[in-house]
Nucleic acid binder design. Structure first.
Length: 569
RNA sequence: GGGCAAUUAGCUCAGUUGGAUAGAGUGUUGGCCUCCGAAGCCAAAGGCCGCAGGUUCGAAUCCUGCAUUGCCCGCCA
């Protein structure tokens, strides 16, 4: 495998931090202060453009420590900063903010770096090659994926894309919950449908069984394929000896359907891991033995408990029931233990938000096993409520009345569905309106960004017709880009690395869609105000550089989101 | 009863480590195509950042209490 080279050099912010650090060190030395905690230096993008490109509150921070007036300290720092040739202007404002403005050539050079980085721009070495396992969807193979699973799928997949981009080595994993009671119920439900088809059962399917119509379809399939081969033992409802056949048939078929749906949604997995494997291979026993060795298990009332409360959980949890059956939690401990053994440095689980109470106990287990609690993160994904043109659509998994992911993707398209799921932070509730997501010509947010991309492509097609080319001359590169909105656009592009780093650090994906939306808005606004292709060759050539760089970043964003970047719409 | 989270414009939501005059979309009202794509742009109106205290140069952001809402609290998975 080739190693991805980090092509982005310094973002402007990091450059400015260096200047400020240097100035602080100089002033500190002059005042006889030895060490200053330089990590505390904060550089911000001011809200008001008039304040400059960057601003620092360091003078106010130092004021307390040095027992001096912040504006005085600011003035001393300004004297140092004025020596930097990249800084066009340094001013002290308000209570002691230091506002800095960079020179035009400085920004033009930054644009050049961005363009030269090409499709790799803003790739980070934040992850430093550490191995991450993102586990998501992991829906029980008892029915088709619904829209809630779709959100989890989008979040997990984009998380994996983002972390890969940020320098981690990432694998995606689907944990197949193919052990336990619900699989028995699945088998019984299919068996009942099968018998119904043969006229041996009438009326409503019993309470507690899976009611969805997909089981009836499966039963038909089963009857057509191999119905004749089923023995009396297979269909004996008194004795579950033959149940395994139905369970396996249903689970395999449903899992295959799930794979197809995810494929349609643009989501693939490196690993599909079976829960059953953990019981049959003795991995659960190994994990429990490990915990026992660490002296965090005890017996009480016939059951075996894990002392999770010692690690911050609110109470201890049962791992082996009094009847000798190991709990789901026990297999989950074994599962996560095995993930670490496979060599992953960081585990990320994407769960439904109703599982939030489960986080402390799993974290406790991870800590008890000797791993850093920070090496595990659970991303909680809130429910999706579905509506159509403003009126809610009722959903009930048990009653089998729900809109499947497949239906949604076929109706609104992969791009719109994915984008919609990522416009809000994952732990806040989301209303998904089918009509809105489907609308192709007005209110749909996904088209806003795609349109910006297509629009730039259109400009380039036009430029080619007119024989105008981007300005590649190093001496005059981008030199005519001096409008405030042009500099704002370069700043926005410059800030992309910081944006991705914060998204990767916090695991918050909505930051990408917000950034993309803002960048597209700036582009549209610029386009409406200024013509890219003009009589002036230098201006046209420079503006093509700028919009070309914007197209590049929009495409990176869309790719990270798994959304297409069309050249025409 | 205990725990976790949330509360920002009519509605849906952003708001990096505490920073300067609080942001977007949508909705409402009014403008912009003889001009590179109007799936776009511009402007106006709209706020006790749930309430009350505290911390400090400075709070939507941190702390405490209260109110309201959602979720979780099984030897289920």
């Amino acid at each position: 495998m080739f190693r991805v080279r980090v092509r982005d050099r310094l973002s402007m912010k990091k450059k400015v931090i260096k200047y400020v650090e240097k100035a602080v060190a100089a002033v500190a030395a002059a005042r006889g202060f030895a060490d200053v905690e330089l990590s505390e230096i904060g550089i911000e993008l001011p809200r008001e453009k008039a304040f400059g490109d960057f601003s620092s509150n360091i003078a106010m921070q130092l004021a307390g420590r040095w027992k001096d007036n912040p504006r005085k300290i600011g003035a001393a720092l300004k004297d140092e900063l004025d020596k930097e040739t990249d800084l066009a202007e340094v001013t002290i404002a308000g209570p002691g903010f230091i506002n800095m403005r960079l020179t035009f050539p400085c920004w033009h050079q930054r644009l050049q770096e961005i363009i030269e980085s090409g499709a790799d721009f803003a790739q980070l070495d934040y992850g430093q090659g550490r191995r991450v396992l993102v586990e998501f969807v992991s829906a029980n193979p008892t029915g088709p994926l619904h829209i809630g699973h779709g959100r989890g799928a989008a979040v997990g997949d984009v998380l994996a894309r983002l972390l890969t981009w940020a320098g981690f080595s990432v694998d995606r994993e689907y944990y197949v919950n193919d052990a336990g009671n619900q699989m028995m119920v699945l088998g019984r439900s299919l068996r009942w449908r099968y018998l119904e088809l043969q006229g041996q059962r009438q009326g409503e399917i019993p309470e507690g069984y899976y009611q969805g119509g997909y089981l009836l379809d499966l039963a038909k399939e089963l009857l057509a394929d191999q119905g004749a081969e089923l023995t009396a033992a297979n269909v004996d409802e008194e004795d579950d000896a033959g149940l395994e056949f139905f369970t396996k048939f249903a689970a395999d078929a449903i899992l295959a359907g799930i794979r197809d749906d995810l494929d349609l949604f643009g989501v693939g997995f490196e690993h599909w891991t079976s829960e059953k494997k953990f019981f049959t291979s003795g991995l659960v026993d190994d994990a429990l033995a490990d915990l026992k060795k660490k002296e965090v298990l005890y017996e009480e009332e016939g059951a075996t408990w894990f002392a999770s409360s010692r690690f911050g959980d609110e109470k201890d949890r049962v791992v082996v029931r009094a009847n000798g059956v190991k709990t789901y939690f026990a297999s989950d401990i074994a599962y996560h233990r095995e993930k670490y053994e496979r060599g992953y440095d960081l585990l990320i689980d994407v769960w439904g938000a109703d599982h939030h109470g489960y986080v402390p106990r799993l974290k406790a287990a991870i800590e008890a096993l000797g791993h850093e609690p920070e090496s595990f993160a659970a991303i909680l994904v809130q429910l999706v409520s579905l509506s159509r043109g403003g009126t809610p659509v009722a959903m009930s998994t048990r009653a089998g009345q729900f809109i499947t992911l497949e239906e949604v993707v076929r109706e609104v398209g992969k791009d719109a569905a994915r984008y919609f799921f990522l416009t809000r932070r994952s732990d806040s509730q989301l209303d998904f309106d089918l009509e809105l997501a489907k609308s192709k010509n007005n209110d749909n947010p996904v088209y806003y960004a795609q349109y910006a991309h297509a629009r730039i492509c259109s400009i380039f097609r036009r430029a080619e017709e007119e024989g105008v080319k981007p300005n590649c001359d190093r001496a005059s590169f981008a030199a005519s880009l001096t409008l405030p909105e042009e500099l704002d656009l370069i700043k926005k592009l410059d800030n992309f690395t910081a944006l991705l780093e914060s998204a990767a650090r916090t695991l918050e994906l909505h930051r990408i869609t917000y950034y993309l939306d803002e960048l597209a808005a700036q582009l549209h606004s610029y386009y409406n105000r200024n013509k890219v292709i003009t009589e002036d060759l230098q201006v046209s050539g420079d503006r093509l550089l700028l919009v070309g760089a914007i197209r590049q970043v929009i495409k990176i964003c869309l790719t990270l989101l798994g959304v297409s970047a069309p050249e025409k719409m």
